[in-house]
Write a protein that binds this DNA or RNA. Structure first.
Lengths: 114, 114
DNA sequence: TCACTATATCGCCATATGGCAATATGGTGA
DNA sequence: TCACCATATTGCCATATGGCGATATAGTGA
């Protein structure tokens, strides 16, 4: 029950759902997410942690960047099924569509000066 | 997005998930739910409203009882898919199992004196 | 080492949520 | 009509949540 609730809570916030959809298009470092979603860095970091603890996203380090991507739901059936559902869901939301356009265009080198 | 979030929020509370699982076994009036779940009547009523607004449950009147049951997700793909998933999920949760046993045994006439 | 960048964590605040008791509403049956 | 039952709504409280700025941590590169 606890794990299920954790996944549902993680998906109960529109900004976190936006992050999931963005990461569905392309893996992103924290400052790219911050740019795309327009929240404070600390807020983005908190959201990513919640998604990670639900088994929905994972990350790797690359230099001083931390690059997040969706998981395959290896840790949680709930995460796996919800990620699969979300691929098909919300595809006609215009605000999300615009965000996804920006996501595919974004250039990490330009946004996060290295 | 709003509808999706509404479904996720509805499923983010363990007591509401318990109600869903109970109603998956059998339709129930509010006082039966109250008995099974052990919360105040006003709290149960509030939870049922949230589930209803998410398109997960519906109700009919029968005398002075209001009898709730799961929907078929006619109103919402999100509700439909989640209800289908939930049928298979949490089936080995011992605390839920016990509640489901009680649910199938419950006798409306005995609990809710008419 | 130092300055700089990226990220995480902390402390705070406003609002949302889940709980209850009390009250309102509406049907039942004498 | 009146008393009673089931349910919904309201008002209140404690805790959770989502937001931010400030600070801590850690890597980079001079």
């Amino acid at each position: 029950m606890k794990l299920f609730i954790r996944v549902m809570k993680a998906l109960s916030d529109p900004n976190r759902v936006r992050v999931i959809k963005m990461l569905g298009a392309k893996e992103l470092c924290v400052c790219e997410v911050r740019q795309l979603i327009g929240l404070a860095q600390s807020t983005v970091s908190k959201h990513l942690k919640i998604l990670e603890e639900a088994g929905l996203v994972t990350y790797r380090k690359e230099g001083s960047w931390i690059i997040y991507r969706l998981t395959q739901g290896e840790e949680s059936e709930y995460a796996r099924v919800m990620l699969r559902n979300l691929k098909g869901w919300l595809t006609d939301d215009p605000e999300l569509q615009e965000m996804l356009d920006k996501t595919s265009q974004i250039d990490r080198e330009r946004i996060c000066a290295a």
